[in-house]
Write a protein that binds this DNA or RNA. Sequence first.
DNA 1: GATAGCTTTTGATGTAGAACAAAAACTGAT
DNA 2: ATCAGTTTTTGTTCTACATCAAAAGCTATC
Lengths: 191, 191
Amino acid sequence: MKATLEDTIQSIYLLPEQALKDVLEHFHHQEYPKNYFLLKPGKTCKHLWFMTKGVARYFYTNDQGKEMNTWFSLDTQIITDTTSFVKQEPAQESIQLIEDSEMYSIEYTALQALLQKHHSFALWYIKLVELNYVTQIEDRLSDLQFLDAKQRYQKLLNLYPEIANRISLGNIASYLNITQETLSRIRADKL
Amino acid sequence: MKATLEDTIQSIYLLPEQALKDVLEHFHHQEYPKNYFLLKPGKTCKHLWFMTKGVARYFYTNDQGKEMNTWFSLDTQIITDTTSFVKQEPAQESIQLIEDSEMYSIEYTALQALLQKHHSFALWYIKLVELNYVTQIEDRLSDLQFLDAKQRYQKLLNLYPEIANRISLGNIASYLNITQETLSRIRADKL
DNA sequence: GATAGCTTTTGATGTAGAACAAAAACTGAT
DNA sequence: ATCAGTTTTTGTTCTACATCAAAAGCTATC
């Protein structure tokens, strides 16, 4: 059974009926094909997306032109380039879909207006930022600091059991900050 | 010239007079000596601190008992264990002062009450979280992913020119995720 | 079912930084 | 000034993972 946008919103922080109605009117449903770019470097991130189906990857392109994944969003996650979105300044990373995907989105300006208009929505947004941005990033940070490649891979598998089927080895390796050769050896249990 | 607590608060997001007054009444001034622990693992972080003078380090103790620094706060920064504070669950890390320090603090419950009471304070807290937590952690995350030890050290020196005088080599090395031997060699320019 | 284009695996060699050990340089208290 | 404790430096060896190269396995299209 598929969660509705309303369920997702209410699960973050309960909004009174009036505010909820107003908020829902500012979200728009969209479908995008595999390989579509939600964000490219140099562009300012204008949206907060609630993905309902699909997969996205976040990546940087380094000086040698190599793409380095920093994050994946699977199915029911929130997507945005936090730094670009909150500061409304040009992004440095790309966000690209790696499956056909469906999502709801709200624009930065609409979000700001709703934050000013509804005290309850401001409290909702606090929960969203605290739980979805802060906690997630901190987790990832401590993984990078304390775990080796194999442990990071196992933790990723635990978090997203389907990841091995839906995301290519190269993309996962890049996220883990190791080469695909190393990840292949980890899978074959030679490391 | 020393910034007041009021200046610091207002620089994040301007509060109307009534809310500001109410907020200021819930902050308390404190002084703690060098080596004092603001937080120990297993304890829930109940405070948000605004340091006005001093230095703190954040660290984990790993299974082998080795302390690993994850962050420093110098002088005018905001201190808290974000994950423990926002979820009100036991912390995994320690926060310890490495100089005699002065700060203002507000308690979790007081903060929550103020968020409910003042719409403007909720908007203020959104800015605080967006700029002080999110942006900072994301920065650190991308450093860890893309820069080698020497580049990370140079960036740290750039950000806090006084750090080399106020924080020991061992503590800095631990933060950079390298051994003190390696940092010593970087300083001597042998790497 | 042959061809082309990806993706994954296997092998050999190289390197940044760890680990261990010990010396040298500070710091501070007596 | 002297001794004890801490912090920093120097030297050697070791290891996780990178890099380069090539083979093997998929998948899709005509």
